[in-house]
């Protein structure tokens, strides 16, 4: 589903991604962990071309998005992203947030988009907030709306860029619950997070990044019980207390 091959990324003199190779199969749940500044957010942002790789190739569902004149807006319709800062559209109601792109970009009728939108709001437990504005919601509620907004595009891939990092501790669980529920489906998920419990629970593959490189990848069992790299051990010992 996602093939990352030999990707490097420079920000000026900064070499933030170093020769990244990664395969994500259809339906697979991949969790990317690592310290701040390790390049994990940059990597996931390359997967929908919010960042353009300096070199290397990324293929999504058979489409090379790093090729010149790649149909990137078309690819983005089926690769949804959930952001750390939610990025809901503040001038639109919750339901309008969900229906805007489906009606304008995918040309789905307003009624149909509203109907499915309300169903997704129901699923994240916020149907009664359909007519509220984002500013009237708590952080956890906003992030659940953002997930529903992503789902209403009917994506085949969901990218989560530290979805709980900006939340108050007591709101993290409600968002994770939605994500765990989502993971039961066939959708492909790539999640950058510091939530190790989530990684253990849903990941098919855990990726550990440090210094712009993938240091280690494997199943959660391998990863949390028997990590190879000293750097991974150190990171885990610090984060799992």
């Amino acid at each position: 589903m996602i093939k990352v091959q030999g990707v490097n990324k420079f920000f000026g003199p900064l070499h933030v991604l170093k020769d990244i190779h990664l395969n994500v199969d259809s339906g697979e749940k991949v969790v990317v962990i690592g310290p701040s500044g390790s390049g994990k957010s940059t990597l996931i942002r390359c997967m929908n071309l919010l960042e353009t790789p300096s070199t290397g190739q990324i293929v999504i569902d058979g489409v090379d998005i790093t090729a010149p004149k790649a149909p990137i807006t078309k690819v983005r319709e089926s690769v949804a992203m959930v952001f750390q800062q939610f990025n809901l559209y503040p001038h639109k109601t919750v339901l309008e947030n969900l229906t805007l792109a489906p009606t304008l970009i995918k040309k789905i009728s307003r009624d149909e988009a509203s109907e499915s939108g309300l169903a997704f709001l129901e699923r994240v437990g916020l149907r009664e907030k359909a007519d509220a504005y984002p500013a009237q919601l708590s952080g956890g509620q906003q992030q659940r709306v953002a997930i529903a907004r992503a789902l209403n595009m009917r994506p085949t891939v969901m990218l989560f860029d530290e979805p709980t990092s900006a939340l108050d501790p007591e709101m993290i669980q409600e968002v994770l619950d939605v994500m765990v529920d989502l993971a039961k489906e066939g959708i492909t998920m790539v999640v950058v997070t510091h939530e190790m419990g989530f990684a253990k629970q849903v990941a098919d593959q855990v990726i550990f990044m440090d210094g712009g490189k993938i240091l280690e990848k494997g199943s959660p069992e391998h990863f949390f019980t028997n990590p190879e790299h000293d750097r991974t051990k150190l990171f885990l010992s610090r984060i799992l207390r």
């Binding site: 929908n48 919010l50 807006t73 078309k74 983005r76 319709e77 690769v79 949804a80 992203m81 952001f83 990025n87 809901l88 559209y89 805007l100 792109a101 304008l104 970009i105 995918k106 907004r149 595009m153």
Partner: peptide
């Protein structure tokens, strides 16, 4: 970025 990510 949110708009781009939705295909705008």
């Amino acid at each position: 970025e949110a708009a781009y990510s939705q295909g705008f």
